[in-house]
């Protein structure tokens, strides 16, 4: 039984003198589980990811993993625990797929920054696992959107994280790759015992794929729990400030949302 989890307690964060973007956030993400964070544009989803990784300092609250304060760790040690798939990835043109994935080994390199056999082994096995081995020597400017997203996820996994944060990993992907990526994340979470937080825009997809859901609105969590408990018409309508209907999808017996056009 593994009870390790990422605990976000009373977290408030802001940019310089501005008003807080997120305030009093409380969330728990268990290992091997997927938590989907839903909310309208500008609700604070990406800001929360920045706060968890220490890019944006907290003005209040704490973030712990297995009861250890992860924000007091050095960047390098934190990068061995948390990895991030950003919403938009900058990928340098001249780098090959393998070069990019190898950058995920950065937090483990020694003083001379040379990759070891162990690093090569991890990267090669990831490349095969995520179906990138055949294109490993291609430069990234020749790849399709789906391939690029897989490269970025492979790079994040090369960090051997215990917590994986993904900012809209399925945006800009067609329906086939959305399914492929979500399935891969579910498998990876349970196989490697990773706690996964992903922000999403497609509510129905979040309901089908996540173990639990949190809804964030105007920087605050307004509901958290199982998809059944959280995805109610009142919660969603409040968060998105639009009338949202929730019915039950007869195939999966899960909530299914739809929106009036008026």
């Amino acid at each position: 039984m593994n009870t390790q989890s990422l605990q976000i307690s009373n977290v408030t964060a802001k940019y310089k003198q501005n008003a807080p973007i997120i305030s009093n956030i409380n969330l728990e993400i268990r290992r091997s589980k997927l938590l989907a964070l839903l909310g309208p544009n500008g609700a604070g989803k990406s800001t929360l990811i920045r706060a968890i990784t220490g890019v944006l300092p907290l003005s209040k609250g704490s973030i712990t993993f297995d009861n250890h304060d992860i924000l007091s760790l050095s960047n390098r040690n934190r990068a061995q625990i948390i990895s991030v798939v950003p919403q938009k990835s900058l990928l340098p043109d001249h780098f090959t797929v393998r070069d990019i994935v190898m950058l995920g080994r950065t937090p483990y390199l020694n003083f001379l920054k040379e990759e070891t056999e162990h690093d090569n082994m991890i990267v090669d096995s990831l490349l095969s696992e995520i179906n990138l081995y055949s294109i490993r020597n291609q430069t990234v400017n020749n790849l399709s959107g789906g391939e690029i997203q897989r490269v970025v996820i492979a790079r994040a996994l090369a960090q051997e994280p215990k917590i994986l944060l993904l900012d809209e990993p399925t945006a800009h992907l067609d329906i086939k790759y959305q399914t492929v990526i979500i399935k891969a994340l579910q498998d990876l979470a349970s196989k490697n015992n990773i706690a996964v937080l992903l922000t999403m825009h497609d509510i129905n997809q979040a309901i089908r794929s996540a173990d639990s859901i949190a809804i964030i609105s105007k920087g605050q969590i307004i509901a958290t729990g199982t998809p059944h408990d959280v995805c109610t018409s009142s919660n969603l309508s409040e968060a998105y400030e639009t009338k949202i209907h929730v019915s039950i999808d007869p195939r999966h017996k899960l909530p299914f949302i739809s929106v009036d056009n008026q």
Partner: peptide
């Protein structure tokens, strides 16, 4: 410190998240 320049190519925020100061 040349290796850090490789990581910088992913952007500063990603470099931070990969453990670079």
């Amino acid at each position: 410190n040349a290796y850090a320049l490789n990581v910088f190519q992913l952007g500063e925020e990603q470099a931070h998240q990969l453990g670079i100061n």
